[in-house]
């Protein structure tokens, strides 16, 4: 299997999904809207064989959340850096577990630390913190009372 060069793939995706934003440098960075996300991801997996989801994480930009996916092809150097923006007051994003099973723990981690809900996740529980923990530490407005300083 010899996949197309990354630039070609991105060009093709651009024409099929006019809503996406592509960063100008050759970083393979693409921003997708939430409602297009599942269809987009399915397509890159099935059509372009991006069969390996390496990384899932999220960032709190104070006004909105951004969920970041890094998808690559096994045995190939290609990697796509896909981002999607979420409403900060209602952070819900479809889960990628049905597409790439490997998202299962990483999405739980993002849920745990940033409080982003993954719809359709089979087992969305806190993973690193205690089940009774209040708040989500990686949010920028997270305040914690106690510890050494208090």
């Amino acid at each position: 299997m010899n996949p197309k060069p990354l630039e070609e793939i991105i060009e093709e995706l651009k024409t099929r999904y006019p809503g996406i934003e592509v960063a100008e440098s050759g970083s393979g960075s693409i921003t997708v809207t939430v409602d297009q996300l599942v269809a987009f991801m399915r397509e890159i997996k099935e059509k372009y064989h991006f069969n390996y989801l390496t990384n899932v994480t999220g960032v709190d930009y104070r006004d909105y959340f951004e969920v970041v996916y890094n998808v690559s092809i096994v045995e190939q150097p290609h990697m796509l850096h896909i981002k999607t923006r979420l409403d900060r007051h209602n952070p819900v994003v479809p889960s990628m577990v049905p597409i790439w099973g490997g998202a299962i723990w990483q999405e739980r981690e993002v849920y745990d630390l940033l409080g982003i809900t993954f719809e359709g996740h089979p087992d969305l529980r806190r993973i690193l913190l205690d089940d009774q923990w209040e708040g989500h530490p990686l949010r920028k407005d997270y305040q914690w009372e106690g510890g050494r300083e208090s």
Partner: peptide, 16 residues
């Protein structure tokens, strides 16, 4: 850094 995230291989491997 505004945000740092580590994709830790053992963590992901444990998911299975």
């Amino acid at each position: 850094p505004y945000r740092v995230h580590f994709r830790r291989p053992s963590f992901v491997n444990l998911g299975y």
